[in-house]
Amino acid sequence: MAAAAAAGAGPEMVRGQVFDVGPRYTNLSYIGEGAYGMVCSAYDNVNKVRVAIKKISPFEHQTYCQRTLREIKILLRFRHENIIGINDIIRAPTIEQMKDVYIVQDLMETDLYKLLKTQHLSNDHICYFLYQILRGLKYIHSANVLHRDLKPSNLLLNTTCDLKICDFGLARVADPDHDHTGFLTEYVATRWYRAPEIMLNSKGYTKSIDIWSVGCILAEMLSNRPIFPGKHYLDQLNHILGILGSPSQEDLNCIINLKARNYLLSLPHKNKVPWNRLFPNADSKALDLLDKMLTFNPHKRIEVEQALAHPYLEQYYDPSDEPIAEAPFKFDMELDDLPKEKLKELIFEETARFQPGYRS
């Protein structure tokens, strides 16, 4: 834990890192770190609560700039109880001085990944967590956004079992017609939660990839272990087919990539493993919904509104309290091709509203 900075004593240090967030945020305490930044909790002297502050230093890398800009653009436009918001952003007053960006968010005690390492969940908890994931996802999908990296560590939890989806750095506007060349190379989302079509096709992607990830998360809540822990690309596919069985001819016809289709045709026939054999203690309604989410063919996979209306979630289902976005989200430009200098300018502009004396 960093010592509390005395008023006016300059930035606090946390594990050798400068955290320049005073005077409003003090009493910093280390939480963890990701690929390009550290997260601390801090005391907000204005709202009198502890908050989470993520320090991001992305400006050396085009990919990190892209992810940072995506996350900020999306989260500043989203407003939903099951999606983490941005409360404040701290950065230098000029673009030349801006080396880091500090993002202030609600402090959540833990995440689903940490929880599943230590606790076996009751059916009631599984049901409530799944409902909140789908409630947040309904809003995301209504904005025409794909999260693309749903996994237990991106689901934040607090002691009252509130759940918030975080990390929109890989999110995209849904565009089933656009052929994202190089899709697989830039697709760094965790393999275990990846839909089979991501490994088999490169053309376009749809909201059904997020539903697949939610199915993987439900299976993990039922058993405290990942359902498809593939060691590499082909191993991942083999794990999936080992449980779902061989795809039907109709399902194979959806695979545009001939090499991928021929690979699947070359494999020995596998039978589907019954879900109640894998999860003998699970609620039968939970397994019915799991089956509809972990469907090989993305066109037959359940959609988020149908999933919310499934009998497993009937005690929570309330369409009048499951809000959607006001308007579909649009990125003005494809960020993939922009140089990091341009992305830095866009991050600077996007964060201006939090600067003292800002006038829109």
Score class of each variant (00 low, 15 high):
Ile89Gly: 01
Met98Leu: 14
Leu308Ile: 02
Cys127Arg: 14
Val18Met: 02
Lys117His: 05
Pro58Trp: 15
Ile256Val: 00
Leu150Gln: 14
Tyr43Trp: 15
His269Thr: 12
Tyr36Phe: 15
Arg261Gln: 13
Asp210Asn: 12
Cys166His: 07
Gln119Ser: 01
Pro196His: 14
Asp100Pro: 13
Met333Asp: 12
Leu222Gly: 09
Leu137Cys: 04
Lys54Gln: 13
Asp100Phe: 12
Tyr43Lys: 11
Ser248Asn: 08
Pro176Met: 01
Val273Ser: 10
Met13Arg: 12
Ile140Trp: 06
Ala195Met: 03
Val101Ile: 12
Ser142Leu: 11
Arg15Tyr: 00
Asp235His: 09
Ala282Arg: 11
Asn144Ile: 15
Leu112Tyr: 04
Thr63Ile: 13
Cys254Met: 00
Lys151Arg: 01
Lys270Gly: 03
Leu287Ile: 07
Arg15Lys: 14
Lys285Cys: 04
His232Pro: 04
Lys340Trp: 02
Pro229Arg: 03
Leu157Val: 09
Ser223Met: 11
Asp149Cys: 04
Trp192Lys: 04
Ile83Cys: 01
Ser122Ile: 13
Gly22Pro: 11
Tyr64Ala: 14
Ile84Cys: 14
Ala282Met: 01
Tyr128Gln: 03
Glu197Phe: 05
Lys203Phe: 07
Leu107Ile: 03
Phe279Val: 13
Gly215Asn: 10
Arg135Ile: 01
Pro319Gln: 15
Phe228Cys: 00
Phe129Ala: 02
Lys54Asp: 03
Val18Ser: 04
Leu287Tyr: 08
His61Arg: 12
Asn201Ile: 15
Tyr113His: 04
Thr68Ser: 15
Val51Glu: 13
Ser213Val: 11
Met199Leu: 15
Asn271His: 13
Ile90Cys: 13
Ile72Trp: 02
Phe354Met: 12
Asn144Thr: 13
Trp275His: 10
Ala42Arg: 04
Pro93Tyr: 00
Tyr316Thr: 09
Leu155Phe: 06
Ala309Tyr: 06
Asn82Leu: 09
Asp332Met: 02
Ile31Trp: 13
Ala325Thr: 13
Ala4Leu: 02
Lys300Ala: 04
Leu150Ala: 02
Ala143Met: 04
Ile90Tyr: 04
Ala2Cys: 02
Gln306Gly: 01
Pro226Asp: 06
Glu250Val: 13
Tyr193Gln: 09
Pro176His: 11
Ile209Met: 00
Glu197Ser: 10
Thr181Cys: 09
Ser142Gly: 03
Ala6Trp: 06
Tyr30Ser: 11
Pro311Thr: 14
Arg261Phe: 05
Ile74Cys: 04
Tyr233His: 14
Asn45Gln: 15
Cys65Pro: 12
Gly215Phe: 10
Leu116Thr: 01
His232Cys: 01
Ser202Gly: 10
Ala286Met: 01
Asp337Cys: 04
Asp283Phe: 07
Thr94Ser: 15
Ala171Ile: 06
Pro23Thr: 13
Leu294Asn: 08
His232Met: 00
Pro319Asn: 04
Trp212Ser: 12
Phe348Arg: 03
Glu33His: 04
Lys151Asp: 03
Asp336Glu: 13
Ile347Tyr: 15
Gly204Val: 15
His125Thr: 02
Leu218Gln: 14
Met199Cys: 07
Pro23Phe: 00
Gly242Asp: 13
Asp175Val: 14
Pro176Glu: 07
Ile83Tyr: 01
Val188Ser: 07
Val304Trp: 03
Ser122Asp: 02
Thr26Asn: 14
His299Val: 09
Cys254Val: 07
Thr110Trp: 14
Leu121Asp: 12
Ser29Val: 10
Arg135Ser: 13
Asn297Gly: 03
Ile31Ser: 06
Thr159Tyr: 07
Ala3Pro: 09
Ile74Tyr: 10
Cys127Phe: 13
Gly10Ser: 10
Asp88Pro: 05
Ala189Pro: 08
Pro356Ile: 05
Ile133Arg: 03
His180Asn: 15
Arg225Ala: 07
Asn123Pro: 04
Glu341Lys: 14
Val46Ala: 10
Ile89Gln: 01
Leu116Ser: 13
Gln306Asp: 05
Cys166Gln: 02
Gln132Glu: 15
Ile302Thr: 00
Leu252Gln: 14
Leu69Met: 14
Arg50Trp: 12
Ile31Gln: 04
Ala195Lys: 04
Glu305Lys: 13
Ala52Pro: 03
Ile243Glu: 08
Asp106His: 10
Arg172Ala: 03
Thr68Asp: 15
Tyr358Pro: 04
Ser57Gly: 14
Cys40Ile: 10
Lys151Phe: 06
Trp275Pro: 09
Pro328Phe: 10
His80Leu: 15
Gln17Trp: 01
Phe329Trp: 07
Ser360Lys: 07
Asp44Val: 12
Met221Asn: 02
Leu258Asn: 09
Lys340Met: 14
Met108Cys: 04
Leu112Arg: 00
Arg15Asp: 05
Ser320Ile: 09
Tyr187Thr: 02
Glu326Ile: 05
Ser284Trp: 05
Lys114Arg: 12
Arg359Val: 10
Arg50Lys: 12
Gln249Pro: 06
Tyr205Glu: 09
Ile255Ser: 12
Cys161Pro: 03
Lys272Ala: 07
Gly22Phe: 05
Glu334Val: 14
His61Lys: 11
Cys254Arg: 12
Ala35Ser: 15
Leu134Trp: 07
Asp332Leu: 02
Cys216Gln: 04
Glu314Tyr: 07
Val104Asp: 14
Thr118Ile: 12
His80Trp: 01
Arg67Ala: 08
Leu75Asn: 01
Gly85Trp: 00
Ser246Thr: 00
Tyr187Lys: 03
Glu314Val: 13
Leu290Ala: 07
Thr190Pro: 13
Thr110Arg: 01
Thr94Leu: 09
Thr68Val: 06
Lys207Pro: 05
Gly16Gln: 10
Tyr263Lys: 10
Thr206Cys: 12
Ala327Cys: 08
Ile227Arg: 05
Tyr316Cys: 00
Lys117Gln: 13
Glu81Phe: 05
Lys55Asp: 05
Lys117Val: 01
Pro298Asn: 05
Gly182Asp: 07
Ile90Asp: 00
Ala2Ile: 00
Asn257Gly: 05
Pro58Asp: 01
Val304Ala: 12
Ile95Gly: 02
Glu350Pro: 00
Glu220Cys: 05
Asp177Met: 04
Lys114Phe: 11
Met221Leu: 15
Phe129Ser: 00
Ala5Thr: 13
Gln66Ser: 13
Val14Trp: 04
Lys151His: 05
Leu146Asn: 02
Ser153Asn: 12
Gln97Met: 10
Ile86Phe: 15
Pro268Leu: 12
Leu28Asn: 00
Glu334Pro: 00
Tyr131Glu: 01
Leu241Gly: 10
Phe348Val: 12
Glu197Val: 14
Pro274Ile: 02
Lys330Trp: 01
Asn276Arg: 07
Glu33Lys: 12
Arg24Leu: 14
Pro339Phe: 01
Val46Ile: 13
His80Arg: 00
Val173Trp: 05
Phe129Ile: 15
Gly22Leu: 04
Trp212Asn: 05
Phe59Ser: 15
Glu334Phe: 05
Leu184Pro: 08
Tyr113Ala: 13
Arg191Cys: 07
Asn45Tyr: 13
Gln62Lys: 15
Ile133Trp: 06
Ile347Asp: 06
Met199Lys: 14
Ile227Val: 02
Lys330Ala: 01
Cys216Trp: 09
Arg194Thr: 11
Asn45Arg: 01
Ala35Pro: 07
Met221Val: 01
Tyr113Thr: 10
Ile198Asn: 14
Gly136Gln: 03
Met13Leu: 15
Ala327Leu: 12
Gln249Trp: 06
Ala143Glu: 07
Asp100Trp: 05
Ala352His: 04
Ala171Val: 12
Asp167Gln: 08
Leu313Glu: 09
His232Leu: 15
Gly230Val: 14
Asp177Tyr: 13
Pro298Leu: 12
Leu184Asn: 08
Lys55Ser: 11
Leu137Trp: 09
Thr181Phe: 04
Leu137Tyr: 06
Arg359Ile: 11
Asn154Pro: 01
Glu322Met: 08
Ser213Pro: 04
Cys127His: 02
Asn201Arg: 07
Ala4Arg: 11
Ala35Val: 12
Arg359Ala: 06
Tyr193Ala: 06
Pro328Ala: 11
Ser266Gln: 02
Asn144Val: 07
Asn144Leu: 03
Phe348Tyr: 13
His232Ser: 00
Arg172Gln: 12
His80Pro: 00
Tyr316Gln: 09
Leu335Ile: 05
Leu69Gly: 09
Tyr317Arg: 00
Leu313His: 09
Arg359Lys: 14
Ile211Ala: 08
Glu197Lys: 13
Ala92Asp: 11
Leu163Pro: 08
Ile84Val: 06
Lys231Met: 14
Phe59Asn: 14
Asn253Arg: 09
Val188Cys: 11
Thr185Asn: 13
Asn276Ser: 01
Phe279Leu: 15
Ala3Phe: 01
Cys254Ala: 03
Ile83Thr: 04
His147Trp: 04
Glu186Thr: 09
Pro328Ser: 12
Asp106Pro: 01
Gly34His: 00
Ile140Met: 08
Glu303Trp: 04
Asn87Val: 12
Asp235Gly: 02
Asp318Gln: 01
Arg15Met: 15
Lys54Asn: 12
Leu267Asp: 01
Val49Leu: 13
Cys127Val: 14
Val273Cys: 03
Leu237Lys: 03
Thr160His: 11
His141Pro: 12
Gly182His: 06
Phe78Met: 06
Arg24Lys: 00
Pro23Trp: 00
Leu155Trp: 07
Tyr187Ala: 00
Lys203Thr: 11
Ala4Glu: 01
Tyr205Arg: 10
Leu200Val: 12
Arg225Trp: 01
Ala5Pro: 07
Pro58Ile: 13
Pro196Ile: 01
